[in-house]
Structures are given as C-alpha cells and as structure tokens.
C-alpha cells in the first residue's frame, strides 16, 4: 500500500469518488453506532418515545447473569483460537509438502465456508441431536449418545470447536498455503540437506516466514468470535441449553427482539462495540506494520 506523497493534490475529485461509500457508511454504520450509545442511556421499546434513565442499564448489566454468561462464553471461544491456529497451520504445512490429492482436500474442506453459517448451523442442528444419524452410530458403539447440544459443557465446546476450528479450516488452508508459497524454496531445500525434520522446519522456517499471515489469522478469528457468530448460534443452539452458548451478540438479539428492551440491548451493544474497537485497532496496526 505505497502511496506517493509530495505531488499536487487531486482537488475535490476524490471526495466525489468517495461520496457513495461515505454516504452509505454514515447512514448504515456511523449513525446506528452513535444512536446505540444514545439509547443505551434510555428505556426504549424500539419505537415510540424513550425515557432517559442515565446509567441504569449499565448497572443492571453488570449484575446480569446472562451478561456474565455471555462474556464467559465468548472468553471460552477465544481459548479455541490457539488450537485453530496450530491445527490449521499444521495441516497447511502437511499439504505444502505435496501430499497427493491436496487440491481435492483443500476444496472439500472449503465447503463449510462456502455454505455459510446459516446452512451449517441448520445442518449441525440436525446432525448433532441425540437421535441423529451420528448419535445413532455412536449409540451403536458405546451404548449411549453424546449430548452435543444439551449438555452445557459439551454445547459451548461443540460450538467452539465447530465455529473456531472446523468451519474455517478450508479458508485457513487456502490462506496459509498462499502465504507459504511465498517462502523461498531454497530455504526448504537447504533445511532438508541439513537433515532437519519436518517439525524443525515447521517451527524454524515455515511459521516465522509467514508471521504476518499467522497474526492476521488470529485477528480474523477474534473477529469471527466477537462479531460474526450470531447466525451460527441462532440456527444451532439459540444460546441454549439455558445460557450455555449465549454470546454478546445473541444477548443483544434477545434483549432487543424478544424482550423489546432496546435501551438495555444498546448497553450490551456498547460493550460489544468496545471489544470490536480494540480488535479493529489491533488489525489496523497489523496492516500498517506489514505495509511498512
């Protein structure tokens, strides 16, 4: 992203080019976020007049079991990010070694990304039930099904494993393979001549060479966990059982669209916004660092 400086400016033309984008963003991004901050200090049903209640929503939120549960659940998802990074990197490295059929593997593993969270959520909601095909098979072997969706511990971990590790695998493979492709092949040849093992090459050559890609991957996963998983939760578990897969996004949804406490929901939104702002800043820094 090199940009030349020091030449004469382009006058008003750039602003004309930017006008559609800026108008859309002002209306659909900046205004909603600003309004969220305003309504977080009110009691409001989403229509009609609102009532100022100061910090009351925030006070309620801090003592709200559901809020704490959703923070905790989001935290648990974050714990899957290292696993996702390691697994994806390793498989990419395997494929990089020219394993036969790697293109087919890469394509098939990409299918979940292709179909998206809504379809995958519905598919897994059928597939992981206690009386599903999978559990019928498991019951045949072990005598009892695995309660993927109705045990609180399993439910959140199932979501974590599926969403953070499994569903992105295909995406990550393409991504890391492209990054690894940029590594000078002679380094690998030299390592091989030195008799370095796969693991040693992986740790000493591959990972350090694609450091930026790995960092982007981590940031990407943070974004998925905080800002993109609503559709999957909504179609797979609806935040349940109880509150065991409730997340900030899902809480915002329930408060605003089931209980119609839009003011209170906005307070949750402000918290989510704060998290996202931090992730966003991290991402921007990363981009700037790479471009230098």
């Amino acid at each position: 992203m090199r940009r030349r400086r020091g030449l004469e400016g382009d006058g008003a033309v750039p602003y004309v080019f930017l006008a559609p984008l800026l108008a859309l963003l002002a209306a659909f991004m900046i205004y909603p976020v600003a309004m969220n901050i305003v309504t977080s200090f009110t009691e409001w049903k989403g229509y009609g007049p609102w009532k100022w209640i100061g910090l009351a929503n925030y006070k309620t939120m801090i003592g709200d079991e559901q809020f704490l549960a959703s923070i905790l659940n989001t935290g648990l998802m974050v714990l899957y990010i290292p696993l996702s990074t390691i697994v994806t990197l390793l498989i990419a490295a395997f494929l990089r070694e020219g394993i036969g059929g790697w293109k087919v593997y890469r394509a098939i593993l990409y299918i979940p990304n292709l179909l998206g969270y809504v379809l995958m959520g519905v598919i897994f909601s059928i597939y992981l039930r206690d009386d599903s095909a999978l559990n019928t098979a498991i019951r045949g072997i072990t005598g009892s099904p695995i309660h993927f969706l109705i045990s609180p511990v399993l439910a959140i971990n199932t979501v974590g494993l599926l969403l953070v590790v499994f569903l992105h695998l295909g995406f990550g493979l393409i991504y890391f393979l492209a990054a690894m492709n940029g590594i000078d092949k002679s380094i690998y040849e030299a390592a091989l001549i030195d008799g370095a093992s796969f693991w040693k090459t992986f740790l000493r050559v591959t990972v350090p060479s694609i450091r930026f890609a790995v960092e982007f991957w981590v940031v990407f996963n943070f974004i998925e966990v905080f800002a993109r998983m609503f559709s999957f939760i909504h179609t797979l578990t609806q935040g349940g059982p109880g509150y065991s897969t409730f997340t900030l996004e899902y809480g915002i949804f329930i408060q605003a669209f089931s209980k119609f406490k839009v003011g209170y929901s906005s307070a949750w939104s402000v918290v989510l916004f704060a998290f996202c702002a931090m992730i966003s800043v991290a991402q921007i820094r990363l981009m700037q660092r790479r471009d230098e």
Binding site: M29, Y31, F273, S280, I284
Partner: peptide, 24 residues
C-alpha cells in the same frame, strides 16, 4: 483519516447495527 475510519468499520457486528438499520 478516512481510510482508517473505513478500516475501523470492517469488523462491526451486524447485531450492533440491526435495530437502527431496520428503522432507517
């Protein structure tokens, strides 16, 4: 500054915007 603003907005969750967007 405008580019940074755009970058900043790449990750906003939809649920953050949903109520106001539907109203708009």
């Amino acid at each position: 500054p405008l580019f940074l603003l755009v970058l900043f907005m790449t990750i906003f969750p939809q649920l953050l915007l949903a109520t106001q967007v539907s109203k708009l």
